[in-house]
Amino acid sequence: MLASNLRPGAADALLFDLGRVVIDVDFVQVVSRWAAHAGCAADDLAPRFVRDEIYHGHERGTVSDAAFFAHLRGRLGIDISDAQFLDGWNAIFVGPMPGIAPLLARAAKRLPLYAFSNTNVPHVAHFTPRYADLLGHFREIFLSSSIGLRKPDAEAYDHVVRAIGMPAEKIVFFDDLAENVEGARNSGLQAVLVRSTDDIAAALNALEV
């Protein structure tokens, strides 16, 4: 879904979410791995997982891995080790989104690229070396667990815009969640809802990037 005002010269920088925009993720793999460790059915675990304040705190870097896994142990009702929780937690990553690598390479020749992701410390440690080539296109990557702020809070976008050092209206943001796109637009950025890599390609074409 393209922002209506995308046109040549409308962007001085591009800002990308990571999950399901740059790197494909599949939470089914997480639950399946946990279920295998616990010896139970994945279908029993999935409804018990809730993105609550402990989850959000883990993404802001205010809740430790040990506290997060302890919380999950109680909520999911499974008695597996922290190492087993971590194994499942990192199973979420599938690989690069189809077709994203050449699009980033193409865009980086014309404009500075940045990334902004709601994520957590163990995920960062896991995906950073595995996708180093892909992530190398970004001049800076803003991580919620590092900056202590997460989308769609206005303070998070304001922090990133200040760090980039360009007017918000000259930054085009790509995210797969409607609430994050709305938050970005409310903070003055242009924003594109990404349902597939085709939406990114269409936006780059509209910008003549």
Score class of each variant (00 low, 15 high):
residue 162 R to W: 13
residue 181 V to N: 14
residue 98 P to S: 12
residue 128 T to Y: 10
residue 113 L to M: 06
residue 77 G to N: 04
residue 206 A to K: 05
residue 135 L to M: 10
residue 14 L to A: 06
residue 151 K to Y: 11
residue 1 M to S: 05
residue 58 H to M: 13
residue 185 R to M: 15
residue 77 G to I: 00
residue 171 I to W: 13
residue 121 V to E: 05
residue 6 L to W: 01
residue 167 P to E: 13
residue 122 P to I: 00
residue 8 P to E: 09
residue 119 T to I: 00
residue 174 F to A: 13
residue 93 F to Q: 06
residue 129 P to L: 07
residue 34 W to Y: 02
residue 185 R to Y: 09
residue 119 T to Q: 01
residue 39 G to Y: 11
residue 168 A to K: 10
residue 167 P to C: 03
residue 182 E to A: 13
residue 139 R to G: 09
residue 106 R to K: 10
residue 134 L to Y: 09
residue 27 F to E: 08
residue 32 S to L: 09
residue 99 G to E: 09
residue 154 A to Y: 00
residue 88 G to F: 02
residue 159 H to D: 15
residue 114 Y to A: 12
residue 52 D to F: 09
residue 9 G to N: 08
residue 13 A to T: 03
residue 87 D to H: 08
residue 82 D to F: 10
residue 66 A to W: 07
residue 179 E to M: 12
residue 166 M to T: 14
residue 26 D to T: 07
residue 156 A to C: 10
residue 149 L to A: 14
residue 27 F to R: 13
residue 75 R to V: 05
residue 72 L to Y: 04
residue 23 I to V: 08
residue 52 D to W: 12
residue 67 A to E: 13
residue 42 A to R: 00
residue 93 F to V: 09
residue 20 R to T: 07
residue 26 D to R: 12
residue 126 H to S: 15
residue 3 A to K: 00
residue 206 A to M: 03
residue 65 D to G: 07
residue 180 N to Y: 03
residue 133 D to L: 10
residue 162 R to E: 06
residue 205 N to S: 08
residue 187 S to L: 01
residue 12 D to N: 07
residue 62 T to G: 11
residue 33 R to G: 03
residue 120 N to D: 01
residue 47 P to A: 13
residue 174 F to D: 12
residue 131 Y to R: 11
residue 198 D to Q: 15
residue 173 F to Y: 11
residue 189 L to P: 10
residue 152 P to A: 14
residue 107 A to H: 02
residue 203 A to M: 03
residue 109 K to L: 07
residue 47 P to R: 02
residue 15 L to K: 00
residue 72 L to V: 02
residue 78 I to H: 00
residue 180 N to M: 13
residue 61 G to E: 03
residue 112 P to K: 12
residue 177 L to S: 15
residue 28 V to I: 12
residue 33 R to C: 03
residue 158 D to M: 08
residue 32 S to G: 11
residue 189 L to D: 07
residue 158 D to C: 15
residue 199 D to S: 10
residue 73 R to I: 04
residue 111 L to M: 10
residue 102 P to I: 11
residue 128 T to C: 05
residue 209 V to I: 11
residue 196 S to P: 03
residue 9 G to K: 05
residue 148 G to Q: 07
residue 2 L to W: 00
residue 21 V to M: 01
residue 79 D to C: 10
residue 134 L to V: 03
residue 118 N to H: 04
residue 31 V to P: 05
residue 78 I to R: 00
residue 153 D to I: 14
residue 118 N to T: 07
residue 141 I to T: 11
residue 69 F to P: 01
residue 194 V to I: 08
residue 59 E to A: 07
residue 19 G to E: 02
residue 202 A to G: 14
residue 66 A to L: 13
residue 106 R to I: 06
residue 114 Y to H: 12
residue 122 P to H: 05
residue 115 A to K: 15
residue 90 N to S: 06
